[in-house]
Design a protein around this nucleic acid. Sequence first.
DNA 1: GAGATCATATGATTAGGATCATAAAAGCGG
DNA 2: CCGCTTTTATGATCCTAATCATATGATCTC
Lengths: 197, 197
Amino acid sequence: MIDENLLLNHGAKRVTFSKGDQLFREGESALNFYQIASGEIKMNNYNEDGKEFIQGIFSIGQSFGEPPLLANVKYPANAEAISDSEVFQLTKEQFLELLSSNPRVHLKITETLAKRLYYKAIMVSEISSQEPEHRILRIIDYLKHVDKVEGQFAYRLDLTRQQLADLTGLRVETVIRATKSLEKKGELQIKKRKVYR
Amino acid sequence: MIDENLLLNHGAKRVTFSKGDQLFREGESALNFYQIASGEIKMNNYNEDGKEFIQGIFSIGQSFGEPPLLANVKYPANAEAISDSEVFQLTKEQFLELLSSNPRVHLKITETLAKRLYYKAIMVSEISSQEPEHRILRIIDYLKHVDKVEGQFAYRLDLTRQQLADLTGLRVETVIRATKSLEKKGELQIKKRKVYR
DNA sequence: GAGATCATATGATTAGGATCATAAAAGCGG
DNA sequence: CCGCTTTTATGATCCTAATCATATGATCTC
């Protein structure tokens, strides 16, 4: 997370998006840096038969879409507002200028990328080879970890079964059955349809 | 890739590994930065029933294992020498010192992470939802792209079917059948058992 | 060149998640 | 509160990759 004033000093614009709006699409060139001021943004892909895969969900203070900006490649996914959102937007030039004049911030960004890479490394190995229950537990544990929640069943998962399915590459029905089975095994709790871990 | 002299000036050691040696293991703390002087290193996971998943294969000039170093987390995978290899090794402190005194190099590393993130984003979405043939084509295309090969069937894939399986999370038999089917469809060629794309 | 090891190949069977169908509960807008 | 949409739930069936078994073709070593 980059300090708001620093962003504004480097020419950041505040841009608002309504729920459902797309900020950019898969295959487009990366032109801007984004950091969320309010709301939630997801990055996702749709495969040929319309099935969604969610790469990640980002909320206040988090930035997203930097990799293509830094690596000079096209966006590998779409960005879509999950709720009405406001974001700080910098052009690529402004962003690179900010990085070069603030080594501290640059290192912070590098760390952020490193963390995301760590997460993706885990997800890709989990998704590739494990059973549904495994995948689901792992992603929940990751989200719990990100939200810095400690203690058994202290973390309330704020995702629908469908979103959980889209994050793990499974089907809703499979997620529903798997979460129930996990509850039976004591791995998680379901109260008022919400999953606790 | 960081200049060899720069690495040595910052106290890099040359360390040799024999084929099959492990440089580090999943779950260990990240202590060093590594860049390959010669040979090939793979990063992999083994799931509970021993099935391997290859996160990536790195060769001369490439670095690996930086994310945990920068993100202060444990290694998400093992590193193992595919062939006899020599690597430059820097301690974490030396590496961070190098970055802070060489913004150019720092930006280069950031770009490298960004590229890898891009690749993982593609792989995770592909693996999550696509059929075997899709997965295989995508990873071959990626490798071809990395090696900067252009032209139909100009790229010779230097992986065994088993390695291809471990990279995509499939089984050998499935990979064998899928590559044959892809050959029949004209998507790739198989000559002397080697895959060309 | 014989034997051993590794990689590719192929058929038969199984298993588990996807798919399809339908329903009921919860949340929401007017 | 009522109708409408979204989300969760559950059973039945299908399909395809995993699994198991076995064979053959390369490559390597002594």
